[in-house]
């Protein structure tokens, strides 16, 4: 009996309608990821990287095929159940950080825990402080995002993604808006967290330097993974 992979995509298709045109974004994509994998999705613009990450992150549903997270077909879940799954088990890092501008660093990191009734106030505080320490932003903990540099903002987003102790972190071009030095520090941080916590990372990138530091790379082309 074969062991169930942490994440499995099985013949996944996704189409979008743009006006009169139907865009076939993913064409029968299949792959498995083991728990703790650190995987990059690469490919030219329009190859379907973001679409793939949306499906893996349970933000969207495939038109055909299945996305199985720990053996569970996420398309069969209700919208609320998918929201709970994202909140408890999946972290997101966005290219444009997507921080709430009126909340300080602490409050932005705390945000996903506020809707998890299983985490009490004391534990929530502990987790937030730990996450902020992990990304080395303690001195800036009460600053608003507009007072932070791009790299600091992305570290806030990483802390926010990790504060829920997720099984999977999905990152869409996380270094696209960062300079080279900041990118390297950020990748070091992600690798360290991956190593320490066995969190599965799946992220898209165009960055050649970044690709060089990743053991497992998925090459997407025209919505497919060439064999």
């Amino acid at each position: 009996m074969s062991e169930q992979p942490f994440l499995r995509l099985d013949q996944v298709h996704k189409r979008y309608r743009l006006g009169e045109t139907v865009v076939h974004a993913l064409r029968g994509v299949s792959f498995d990821l083991a728990q703790g994998a650190f995987t990059a999705v690469v490919g030219p613009s329009g190859s379907g990287k973001s679409t793939l990450l949306h499906l893996v992150g349970c933000l969207d549903e495939p038109d055909e095929g299945r996305v199985l997270l720990q053996g569970q077909d996420v398309a069969r879940l209700s919208d609320d159940a998918r929201s709970r799954l994202r909140n408890r088990h999946i972290g997101f890092i966005f290219q444009s950080f997507n921080l709430v501008p009126v909340l300080d660093v602490y409050e932005n990191v705390e945000l996903p825990l506020l809707i998890n009734p299983d985490v009490g106030a004391d534990e929530r505080r502990e987790r937030v402080l730990q996450a902020v320490r992990d990304v080395e932003l303690e001195p800036q903990i009460h600053q608003l995002p507009d007072k932070l540099s791009g790299g600091q903002r992305q570290r806030v987003a990483i802390a926010r993604a990790l504060v829920t102790h997720p099984l999977l972190v999905v990152a869409d071009e996380p270094t696209a808006n960062l300079d080279s030095a900041t990118t390297h520090r950020l990748i070091d941080l992600l690798l360290e967290l991956n190593d320490k916590r066995r969190v599965t990372f799946l992220f898209s990138t165009h960055d050649e330097k970044l690709m060089g530091r990743v053991a497992h790379v998925l090459h997407l082309k025209d919505g497919a993974l060439p064999s």
Binding site: G57, L59, D79, D80, S83, R84, L85, R86, N87, R88, F92, F94, S96, N98, V100, L111, P112, I115, N116, R160
Partner: peptide, 16 residues
């Protein structure tokens, strides 16, 4: 709009 999408991605339900 994007912030609403971010909240949904973080696990906020439509009702929340």
């Amino acid at each position: 709009t994007r912030e609403l999408g971010m909240l949904r991605a973080l696990g906020f339900s439509r009702g929340q």
